[in-house]
Design a protein around this nucleic acid. Structure first.
Length: 429
RNA sequence: GUGGCCGUAGCUCAGCUGGUAGAGCCCCUGACUGUGACUCAGGUUGUCGUGGGUUCGAGCCCCAUCGGCCACCCCA
């Protein structure tokens, strides 16, 4: 029988890696709680239409990266390639957007059929933040401050840079799109293939085309900042001022457009040069038209998503993971001889009841003194209880697992007291 | 989707111009040590990613396929 292996680009997270994930998730949860954002969860599968209508028909994501399949009843379903559309759908469906504002976050796997690469996987995890019902630039400012706060808590602020742009309000964007299209139609033949296709449904994307020839043509093109209404431009300036005051360095990039069609207003991207080709670790912006586009009532929205794998890669690369997060055992109980097996299990249970947060590993499966002690050290535990004998013991050994080799013999009854003396119990409250 | 490199024991890798496989680490046993050590003695592990082909014979050649890494592209 041939061995079955994981699907390409879909990774197992092994026990050696889960501590890093827990750490990252915990820092995020704490941060989001500090900003009073609430968690929302929604399904991994949605109607294909949801993504076609939000992300855009002619985007790469919808055109060639979605996992789309037919349900048994013939409906076209897709694994979610991103979270914003799902979040809007869920919020709208349950009346969360009716006459109220929301500050939400989510975390979970997304799916995109791309060629796997460092920092790019077919199943990847995103943490996303979305705010609904707020149209000022204060919410953009808060989100950027929140993300900056996260980088600081993780200790990676020094390797990330913020690129930011203003696409103007939806009318600005539409008007500019038409003007740009008109200009580019005159140079149609000189554009690269992709840009020619985008001319029809996705003109703005041409702005960040990598083709040198296309970029040459764009030099003479009508410029985006010239087509932005005064109030939108003023708001953008205010935002930039807040960023300056908050000590967040930024770089205005007028060709930053984003690959998802639903954006308008402020868009941004946090990038790094530490992850090879995958430079974007977090990005987002305003999407005021999205909820209406999905058939709901018009509700302003702002949000961003960040790639969890890329965060972890970055933390590992820069060695910014706190020491000690991998330790999973505090107390190791060595069980030498079948006679003390039962006593050891019962004793472990009593200790756990008395100190619920203490992580107690009872050695199972037998083995000699030497090898069990070796495992006790390898486990990272601070201390080991050693039960040895052919029958239940009244005295057991307590060994501190450091170089001192300090070992004492204690009565079973007083084992708990001895442990209390060893561990700083407050840390387990 | 395109291109380059790669796929040999749990891990890191070696394997000359094709003659059916090794090393280190780890792990286990024993000896010595009242003991995570050291040293010594011994031991387990692989359908050489998978499926075909060429050949008297393939880990080494050819084709296909799956997977990994990197870049393009795209994005988180």
């Amino acid at each position: 029988m041939a061995k079955i292996q994981a699907i390409r680009g879909m990774n197992d997270v092994l026990p050696t890696q889960t501590p890093a994930w827990h750490y990252l998730e915990q820092v995020m949860r704490d941060l989001l709680a500090a900003y009073a954002y609430q968690e929302i969860r929604f399904p991994v599968v949605e109607q294909t239409q949801l993504f076609k209508r939000s992300i855009g028909e002619v985007t790469d994501i919808v055109e060639k990266e979605m996992y789309t399949f037919e349900d048994r009843n013939g409906d076209s379903l897709s694994l979610r390639p991103e979270g914003t559309a799902c979040c809007v759908r869920a919020a709208e469906q349950h009346g969360l957007l009716y006459n109220q504002t929301q500050k939400l976050w989510y975390m979970g796997p997304m799916y995109r059929h791309e060629r796997p690469q460092k920092g790019r996987y077919r199943q990847f995890y995103q943490m996303g933040v979305e705010a609904f019902g707020m149209s000022g630039i204060d919410i953009e400012a808060e989100m950027l401050m929140l993300s900056q706060d996260l980088w600081q808590r993780l200790g990676i602020a020094d390797v990330l840079t913020l690129e930011i742009n203003n696409l103007g309000n939806p009318e600005d964007r539409k008007r500019y799109g038409e003007t740009l299209k008109e200009y580019l139609l005159d140079h149609r033949e000189a554009l690269d293939e992709d840009s020619q296709r985008r001319l029809e449904k996705n003109v703005l994307r041409i702005l960040d085309s990598k083709s040198p020839q296309t970029q040459e043509i764009l030099k003479q093109a009508p410029q985006l900042p010239d087509h932005i209404s005064a109030d939108s431009a003023a708001g953008f300036q205010q935002l930039l001022e807040i960023l300056t005051q908050a000590g967040i360095p930024y770089q205005v990039n007028n060709s930053l457009v984003r690959g998802l069609d639903y954006y308008n207003g402020v868009v941004f991207e946090w990038t790094t040069d530490k992850l090879g080709a995958q430079s974007a670790v977090c990005s987002g912006g305003r999407y005021d038209g999205l909820s209406k586009q999905l058939g709901g009532t018009a509700t302003p929205g702002v949000g961003f998503a960040l790639g969890m794998e890329r965060m972890i890669l970055l933390l590992e690369e820069l060695d910014r993971l706190p020491v000690g997060i991998s330790r999973t055992v505090d107390l190791y109980i060595c069980v030498i001889g079948e006679g003390v097996r039962q006593q050891a299990l019962i004793l472990a249970g009593e200790i756990r009841r008395k100190i619920p947060a203490l992580r107690v590993l009872t050695h199972c499966g037998g083995g000699k003194y030497n090898s069990q002690l070796k495992k006790a050290f390898a486990s990272g535990a601070q201390c080991a209880l050693i039960l040895e004998g052919e029958a239940a013991q009244t005295e057991i050994k307590l060994r501190v697992l450091d170089d001192s080799g300090e070992t004492s013999t204690v009565g079973v009854e007083s084992a708990f007291d001895s442990l209390s003396g060893l561990f700083d119990l407050e840390q387990f409250d």
